[in-house]
Design a protein around this nucleic acid. Structure first.
Length: 171
DNA sequence: TCATTGATTTCA
DNA sequence: GAAATCAATGAT
């Protein structure tokens, strides 16, 4: 059954609006063998602009975070700890570096595990969710969730570390 | 709690 | 150039 792709305007809202609304939506991947797989989003984290010390854009625009400065709807992928690809969705308007980290989908918790299962790597960097033929987001049901502080951002300082910008679907 | 792991970033 | 850092994970 084919779901409806989300409207491109959805990704242009502020990251704090987009993050909770992504819960329950479907990440859809078409692989090299033309097989389409769907994953329901269950956990995300929001990273919000240069002022957010936990955000990769907190020290300005670099080669790595460049795509965060583009219009919402692009895909931001990067390697962490030399082993794990992280999947992020850029949000907000052009020049406003925000992104949502996909931390979990139904059946698979953990951002590094997801990308391994979905076969997501560097080649997805900069993909446009509105036009890409191999990754996009489909509408899903609205789910209840709780908020907690973000994980593994001790370097960001107490103020930013304590922001409850991690969103988890409740069962 | 600790080793893994290497691209990116930071410091010189 | 060299050194430090890091949106994590799995084993101990």
């Amino acid at each position: 059954m084919m779901g409806n792709k989300v409207d491109s305007g959805f990704f242009l809202m502020d990251v704090l609006e987009v993050a909770p609304r992504l819960l329950g939506k479907i990440i859809t991947i078409r692989d090299d063998e033309d097989i389409v797989k769907r994953y329901r989003i269950s956990e995300v984290e929001a990273y919000r602009g240069e002022e957010d010390k936990a955000c990769h854009a907190s020290k300005g625009r670099t080669e790595r975070n460049d795509v965060m400065y583009l219009e919402g709807g692009h895909v931001y992928v990067y390697l962490i700890y030399g082993m794990y690809w992280m999947l992020n969705i850029v949000t907000g308007k052009t020049g406003n570096p925000q992104a949502v980290l996909i931390r979990g989908v139904e059946g698979y918790g953990g951002p590094g595990k997801l990308t391994r299962i979905m076969n997501i790597d560097r080649s997805f960097y900069g993909e446009d969710l509105n036009t890409s033929k191999r990754i996009w987001i489909e509408e899903g049901e609205k789910l209840k969730y709780v908020q907690t502080p973000r994980i593994n951002i001790d370097y960001a300082g107490e103020f930013w570390k304590n922001k409850p910008w991690r969103y988890i679907v409740t069962t």
